[in-house]
Amino acid sequence: MSFSFPVVPRYSEIDQQGVVFFGHYLTWCDEAFTAYQASLGYPYPDMIADGVDIQIVHASLDYASSVHWGDLVVIGVENEKVGTTSLTSRLVVRRRASDDQPWGDAVTVQLVHVCVDSTSFTKVAVPERLAKGLAVARA
């Protein structure tokens, strides 16, 4: 994955089992996707100014290992598909316990966003500026 977003697991994100509570992975992925979108040259505020917003209509998470407090974490983001009104992204939460440990995949997430008008929230086409950025990133 060509884009990665660093995350620092906060103590408040750890549950009684000593691992990151599952809901926080979605928050991290939302932040990572927003940073990814900005890296494509079409930051979220620009899209809103153009009258378009995006909403998540599907999210799936597959767990391979747990993230603990103090782990080093990065989230890789890549585009899987751009449709007429939607886009599908794959995000991989990678972790390592310390600098001398290897990186390992912890959670793989798939997000499907639908583009909507920012005032009426009805479906609209994926903005050309976003579609072009995603196409370049995928190439």
Rank of each mutant, 00 (worst) to 15 (best):
I54H: 01
Y42S: 10
I75P: 06
V112I: 08
L91T: 09
H24P: 00
A38Y: 02
W103E: 03
L87N: 09
D71Q: 01
F22P: 03
V73L: 04
T108W: 12
S65V: 08
G41Q: 01
N79Y: 03
G104L: 10
T84Y: 07
S86T: 11
F22S: 13
F21C: 03
Q17K: 04
H24C: 08
V57P: 00
I48N: 04
V107C: 11
A38G: 02
R96W: 03
E80L: 15
G41T: 06
L40A: 04
D105A: 07
D100R: 10
V82C: 11
E78K: 15
D30L: 11
T88W: 01
Y63C: 12
E80H: 07
Q16M: 15
W69N: 14
C29G: 10
W103G: 00
D105S: 10
H68Y: 11
C29V: 12
V52M: 02
E80R: 14
V107D: 04
R96I: 07
T108I: 14
T108K: 08
E31S: 13
Q110E: 13
T27Y: 05
D50L: 05
T88H: 08
H68W: 08
T85L: 02
L72C: 03
H68S: 12
D62T: 14
L40S: 03
Q101A: 15
G83H: 05
Y25I: 05
I48S: 03
A38I: 08
P102N: 11
S89D: 07
V77Y: 04
L91D: 04
C29R: 06
N79F: 02
V82R: 13
A106N: 06
A64Q: 15
R90G: 06
V67A: 07
V107H: 08
D71T: 02
R94P: 00
S66M: 12
D46N: 09
S89H: 07
D46A: 11
D71E: 02
V74D: 15
L91W: 01
N79P: 02
S66A: 15
V19H: 15
E80M: 11
D53K: 01
K81W: 13
Y25D: 06
D99W: 10
S65R: 15
Q17H: 10
Q37M: 12
H58S: 09
Y44M: 13
P43D: 00
L61E: 04
L91C: 06
Q110S: 14
V20A: 03
D50V: 03
K81H: 15
A97N: 07
Q55G: 05
L91N: 05
I54C: 10
Q55C: 09
R90D: 02
